[in-house]
Every structure is written in structure tokens, then in C-alpha cells.
Computed example of a mutant assay.
Amino acid sequence: MDLATLTLFLPACFALNMAPGPNNLLSVSNATRYGYRTSCLAGIGRLLAFAGMIALASAGLAVVLQTSEWLFYGIKIVGAAYLLYLAWQLWTADPQVETATKRPEAGLLALARQEFLVAAGNPKAILIFTAFLPQFVDPSQAVTPQFALLGALFLALEWVAIASYAYMGLHMRRWFSQPRGKRVFNRCCAGLLAAAASVLLMARRT
């Protein structure tokens, strides 16, 4: 995997990691109620769920790539369309609407389990690993090492997102709870996702 691919992957991946989905908002909620350290440690449950999804996606990726190059490019187009869909959702999201999250009553294990279940039950996460990550894999080289590297980078950036949202829960609670703050944050993430989708659509693979 070359440096140019990683240079394209990292900002696009980080935009996905930082998009305000149910797990990230859960980190904000947990930090507000239980503290920064507890919220970050609870995020391990999310990482375990994502690691399992990455392993499953990797197992089926070689078959997809060996079956048809056209199918590979089809996955690429679907992945870019999904990024645009996410961007549209964030751009048009109503900041007045707040999602009520049921909080566990006790313990780090309960919080980690909740993170795991929310991540495992999120269809968007499954789409990311089956339609987004394969776009950065070179089918002419060994697939498994490339997918392992991309997966490891995704999990590392996801940990950064967990810590960042937990920090928001502690120090930016007032700003983040305001409709204007939510709108600005949503639209910044939407712009990053739309830009990533545009670059991916224009990119060609030799």
C-alpha cells in the first residue's frame, strides 16, 4: 500500500470516525455522567464490535476482488454514494431533535457492553467495512495485510474519536447542547464526507 493511498484514506476515515453517530453521542453522555476516563474505557466495547466486523469483511473481500474487477469498482461507487448519503443526512439534520439514550445504571462493564451492542447493531458500521475500506485495497497485491492495516488505522482513529467526544462531554457540554453548535458540527462533518466521496469517485486504480 503506497503513501498516496494512505494520504487519501486517513482524512476520509477520520471524517467517518468523527461523524456524530449513536456511539459517539453515547461517549458524550457517558462522559457527562461517569467521567472522561470511564467513557474512554467503555469505548473498548465499541472497538471490539468493530474489530469483529472488520475480520468478517476481510474474510469475504478476497472472493469479491477475485470474482470481477467490475464488481470491485461497483463496490467503490456504492461506497462513495454512501458517503454522500451520510453527508446529506448530517447537512439536513434537525439540531432541535435530541435522541434520548437509555443509560446503564452501573459499572464499566455495563457501559462497555452498551457500546458493543450499539456498535454491533448499527447497519452504518457494517456498510463502512464492506463498502468503504475495500476502496483503498489494491487487488493486485495481497489483500489480507492491506485490510489488516486499514482496519488497524480505522480502530486507532476510532479511539481518537471516542476520546474527543468524551472530552466534549466534559468541557463542551453547553456548546454542544445548543442547536447552533450541533448544526455547525454536523455541517463540518458533512463537508468532509462529501469531499472524500468526490475524491474517491475521481480516483482511478491501475
Results as ranks from 00 to 15, higher is better:
146 Q>G: 09
114 Q>P: 10
181 G>N: 06
77 I>V: 08
9 F>L: 01
180 R>I: 12
92 T>W: 00
142 A>K: 01
39 S>I: 07
139 P>F: 02
186 N>R: 15
189 C>K: 13
131 A>C: 14
40 C>N: 00
176 F>D: 06
135 Q>S: 08
74 G>T: 14
174 R>P: 04
10 L>S: 03
100 A>M: 11
141 Q>E: 00
195 A>N: 07
92 T>G: 13
63 V>K: 07
183 R>P: 03
50 F>H: 10
153 L>W: 05
168 M>Q: 06
150 L>S: 05
118 V>G: 08
178 Q>D: 00
130 T>V: 08
56 L>H: 07
178 Q>N: 13
124 K>D: 04
86 L>P: 02
148 A>Y: 05
70 W>P: 06
6 L>A: 01
146 Q>F: 02
164 S>V: 12
9 F>C: 00
89 Q>D: 11
55 A>C: 08
192 L>V: 11
5 T>Y: 07
127 L>D: 07
159 W>N: 07
66 Q>L: 05
199 V>W: 12
119 A>W: 15
1 M>F: 09
3 L>P: 10
187 R>T: 15
56 L>F: 10
166 A>P: 05
164 S>Q: 06
29 S>W: 14
205 R>W: 08
153 L>D: 02
51 A>K: 03
107 G>P: 00
68 S>A: 02
164 S>C: 09
66 Q>C: 01
180 R>E: 15
186 N>I: 03
48 L>W: 04
203 A>V: 13
166 A>D: 10
91 W>D: 14
83 L>E: 10
47 L>S: 09
167 Y>I: 00
81 A>L: 11
203 A>L: 10
160 V>R: 06
201 L>R: 11
109 L>A: 10
68 S>Q: 00
23 N>P: 10
33 R>D: 09
53 M>G: 06
205 R>L: 15
38 T>F: 04
35 G>W: 08
104 P>D: 09
